[in-house]
Structures are given as structure tokens and as C-alpha cells.
Amino acid sequence: MPTHADYRLSQLDELEAESIHIFREVAAEFEKPVLMFSGGKDSICMMRLAEKAFYPAKIPFPVLQVDTGFDFPEVLSCRDSWVSRLGVRMIIASVDEALENGVIVDDGKMSRNRMQIGTLLHALEEGAFTAAFGGGRRDEEKARAKERVYSHRDEFGQWDPKMQRPELWSLYNGKIREGEHMRIFPLSNWTELDVWHYIAREGIEIPDIYLSHQREVIERDGMLLSNGDHLTLRAGETPSVRTVRFRTVGDMTLTGCVESDANTTADIIDEIAVARVTERGATRGDDRFSEAAMEDRKKEGYF
């Protein structure tokens, strides 16, 4: 409980208070908010904050998940457990369905991750959502360091870095025009380590794949990828069983794991505190294509 003789909050309590304020502000000012839930640690952290913001009432908006068809089963079961415990409505936007319905087109070159963009934008438009919460953090990547808490998107879902609104004090400007929407990043000021400290403090459920386990993996482009039906082995690649855990959660074809013995959230915190490579650099194939990969995808409407 945040009670201190000098009336100072700890950094986690201050971050929590700021995020709760953002959730409430959006719920009060936007007609149709939605929470984009990936099942990853950041979106679980968001779910916890949303739960706290409206307690003892239920979260007053649905959650939306983009089903890539290659999601880790452990992540989906964790998602289901959260959704049923909180009694919140879930909308699933499937990449496969979007392909079938011609919402997006597979040209054979596009990764599943990129196909998510079209699927997501379509789901947001179909649901007429005016605000979509995302778990992005400014410490993740250079292009995100300038992201606003309220990030304006035009009627094409695009982000224009030069047209961002100045954000002052704790006054957020939620004005949008017909067809536009706002991406909301309540974890903007959190770091990877803050998220883990918070998960440890709150003792909340996360997908097992974040913790150390045995997994059959292959080594590709300096990353360890989970072996399975979703991968086509290239010449010279031989699967081996290693003791690993995941630092980020994306689709199985692109998200690498790291060798680790970290069994608890406390172990993870120790491991990250000395980590020398960013979570995305280490384990996300989608951000490694170019130095500006994230910037390009953001402009198109990526989370």
C-alpha cells in the first residue's frame, strides 16, 4: 500500500497511478474503446491496470486479439484465463479469415506479422472503435521514443510522426473526427524491467513460455526459433532440445527464444537487469530487417 511518511510514491506506484488515470480518461471520453490484447506480458500488465482502474466494476470495454494462426498455445490459454476471470468480452480478429474474405492478400512475401496490420485495421473499422489501447512502451525502440500516450491515426489508420499533438501535463486531447481513431499507450513510461517488477509484485498470471522450459528449437539468423509445423526447415538446420524461455511473445514463426534457467519472475528480473541486448533485437525477426523497420510498420498502422 502506498503510504509513506514523506508522501512520495515508489516508481511502480507512480507509473500505476499514471496508467490508471489514462484508462479512466479514455473510458470517460471515448465512445467505443477497445483493448488490444496479445497475451504478452505488456498486454497482461495492461489488463491488470484496467482491472484496477474500474474495480469493483468490470472493465467497460472489450478486448481484441489478432489471431495470426501461429500463436503459442500457452499464450492463448493464458488469454482465455484472464478473459474469463475478468468477465470481459473478447473479439478475435483472425488473419486466416481476413485472407479468406479478401480483406488482406498474401503475396507470398509478407510475414504473418505484417498481415496482422490489415487484419487489425479491418477489425477496428468494423467494430467502429474510436480508441484502441496498445501495450507499446517508449523504451522498446527508437521510433517509439517520440510516441504520444494518445497517438492519433487518420482515417487510413496511419501515423504521421510530424503531425503528432503536443502532450502536456496530464491533459490528454481525445478529439477525433469521423473515421479517425486514437491509439492509446498506457505503458508509455514503463520499461521492460518495470513491467516485470510489476508482474512480480502483483503476482499475476503470465504465459508459461516466459519461464524456463525444455523446447525443440532450431537456430536461424542468430535466433533460436521454436520448431514445429509452422516452420519449414532449411538445408543444414537440425532441431535440438534446449532449456529456453521467451522474452517477447509474437507469432511462432518470428519470435525467438533465449537460453535461460529463469524459473520465476524474480529470476527473470535478475536476468534482464544484466541483459546486454534489447528484447526486440534479441528475439524479434520482424524488427531486424532494417534500422527503421518499426517506424515503417507504425506508419502503416502497426500497434
Binding site: Q11, R138, A145, K146, P166, N189
Partner: peptide, 25 residues
């Protein structure tokens, strides 16, 4: 931060950075 800035060699906006020491974030 942004490629458009690197190309022009300027900074166009407020950027937020994070670091921590053992006593403060």
C-alpha cells in the same frame, strides 16, 4: 529517433528516454 529526422540531421520532437540507477528511475 526517426529516419526522417536522421535524413535531415535534425530532431523534430520531444523524445522520452529512460534509465535507472540503484536509487532512482
Amino acid at each position: 529517433g526517426l529516419r526522417s529526422e536522421r535524413e535531415q540531421g535534425i530532431t523534430i520532437d520531444v523524445a522520452y528516454r529512460y534509465f535507472a540507477t540503484p536509487t532512482r528511475k
